[in-house]
Design a protein around this nucleic acid. Structure first.
Length: 303
DNA sequence: AGCGGTCAAGTTGAT
DNA sequence: ATCAACTTGACCGCT
């Protein structure tokens, strides 16, 4: 069965996650700052509970958690531990409750750190900051039971082989909490499935197949080939990404995400697989609702 | 309530 | 040189 995943937020449903800007938080007194951050973290834990229930109630089998669910958690100047915030222990309990709820309702949870998180850089500061962010997301993953943290290859710096060698070396610096969840996804500019599949196999990491990125940046491998090879990197339910390009006359616009998924973009060879497909569409839960309807019409079984 | 300027972070390629 | 894209426009001060 196919499990569809919602990414980070809702378009229409009144479930909101909050963040804070570093400039503003940094201007507050330490006590006011801790109170502000605690309030945001608590509100986000509560929102995550409702997000889990919404997904489970609406045929959505997976939810991607926003990287800022604990706002500014690893900011160089403002980093904090939840236990040092007012009510922090209780907030951790709320996240553990999210984990229990997700388990009970059969919902898969994932993370996808943003573009600043990469292990290929030659700059130590960039790698160190990325590792801090990965460790934070792995810690929350432990509380809520998220099993995947997906990142991209990052830059190539004119020499992809060297960049991948640096990435492999950085893997040795990760805790087992990160290492057991980390996955690599092909992007639309630099790293193709052909680049990352051998890397993932060599390092025993799962490969997240983004079919839209592959269509933007092809590599000679067919969709069917990558699908089969990607599945082989997973010892558990594979995770794939799906989106549709915004209609536009310029070729460059093909990369922009559409509000909805065009059912014709759903690979025929994915039907009948036991996989999670994270849906990257701007209309969020509305796009999944429409996709579910269309998939049932063509006979694809969705949970 | 609504508006506009602003926001932590890396890298790439189009313009 | 600037800007948009990348999983996600949201926050905040001002009116």
């Amino acid at each position: 069965m196919i499990r569809l995943g919602l990414c980070c937020k809702f378009a229409a449903e009144p479930i909101k996650f909050f963040t804070a800007t570093a400039l503003h938080a940094g201007r507050l007194s330490p006590a006011a700052r801790r109170a502000k951050l605690a309030g945001l973290c608590r509100a986000n834990a509560a929102a995550l509970m409702r997000a889990i229930d919404y997904c489970a109630d609406n045929g959505i089998g997976c939810f991607r958690v926003n990287s800022q669910v604990l706002p500014l958690k690893t900011h160089p100047a403002l980093a904090y531990e939840l236990k040092d915030l007012p009510g922090g222990a209780e907030i951790v309990k709320m996240f553990r409750s999210c984990g229990a709820l997700a388990r009970r309702r059969g919902l898969r949870l994932t993370f996808h750190p943003d573009q600043f998180v990469l292990l290929s850089s030659a700059k130590e500061a960039v790698t160190a900051a990325s590792i801090r962010e990965l460790e934070y997301q792995a810690q929350v993953s432990g509380w809520i039971g998220a099993d995947v943290i997906t990142i991209h290859g990052g830059g190539a710096y004119g020499d992809k082989a060297s960049a991948l060698a640096r990435t492999a070396k950085a893997l040795g610096r990760l805790s087992s909490a990160v290492r057991s969840r980390l996955a690599f996804e092909n992007d639309d500019r630099v790293y193709t499935p052909a680049d990352l599949l051998p890397f993932c196999l060599a390092n025993e990491l799962p490969f997240v197949y983004d079919v839209h990125h592959h269509r933007c940046l092809p590599d000679g491998l067919s969709l069917g080939q990558v699908t089969r090879l990607a599945i082989g990197t997973w010892g558990r339910e594979p995770l794939f990404h799906l989106s549709s390009p915004r209609t536009g006359r310029k070729a460059a616009e093909a990369r922009y995400h559409h509000d909805f998924i065009d059912i014709r973009d759903f690979p025929a060879c994915w039907r009948g697989l036991d996989i999670t497909v994270e849906v990257e569409a701007k209309a969020k839960e509305l796009a999944i609702k429409r996709l579910l309807t269309q998939m049932s019409k063509i006979g694809v079984v969705v949970r």
